[in-house]
Design a binder for these strands. Sequence first.
DNA 1: GTATTTGTTGTTGC
DNA 2: TGCAACAACAAATA
Length: 277
Amino acid sequence: MPELAEAEFFRKRWQQAAVGRRVTAVLAHRRARIFRGSNLVRLQRALTGATLLGSAAAAKQMLFRFSGGAWLGVHLGMSGELRVAPAGYRQQKHDHLVLRTAAATLVFSDPRMFGRVQFHLGALPPEWWTKIAPAILSPAFTLAAVAAFLHRRAGAPVKAVLLMQERFPGVGNWMADEILWRAAIHPQRRAGTLRPAEVRALWRECRHVARLALATIAGRSDSLPPDLNVNIPRSWLFWHRWEDGGRCPKTKAPLVRATIGGRTTCWSPARQKLRRP
DNA sequence: GTATTTGTTGTTGC
DNA sequence: TGCAACAACAAATA
């Protein structure tokens, strides 16, 4: 599920429930794949008794900062989510990491375990975090940078290129489809064949979709919607891309699905054409 | 039983 | 060396 705005939503959820609170216990499924590459024993030792000081989200990742120089990185993969449960909540089958505080329980669950937890101890944030590509909404995400990247990936379908985190951090399958639909670009187009006006439209819609998704899914400033997606307008492709017999919200023409760049892709043939008429 | 899934990584081949 | 394509990871759901 989680792309850019969902990561921000889940980060806020944990932050609001537990910032300033002390972790009284850390429960974990010891063998879970989500702990691959990190030392669970050190994680449990460092987080038990530590206070949540702050957090940030970037791309599809989250970073929680605890007292004592402890950092907890979270990537939700395909099926992960962060929840807040009452104090005394009982750990369920897919709840691979559970942090208890006096008031609430923080739960990371992920049935498919494509997600990942990364633990880091130190005064500075971990290297994997600082190496995340500049955000789409940052000044570094320029038209020139996008154009150069499309040129380098000239042979790949533009849909596949949008999924590359090194240039489009936080873009996942639904955001990529949404961006291409709004920019009126066929997902199968080779990245190197886009005309300058199309490159500009792609760049512009990346920023629009990122900004709109953050505002509607994660909420503005301190607000947090009660659930994911409840505020997403029906006018987005989002709601229609999996519907049987789904229609383009703009043209009302039937939508089409196919595998492009290894992922199921939905587009509106009425407005996203392979060749110019 | 089959096919599907909003993600990433390692391998293969050009 | 760089790029593109694809299998693998795992479990629930239709």
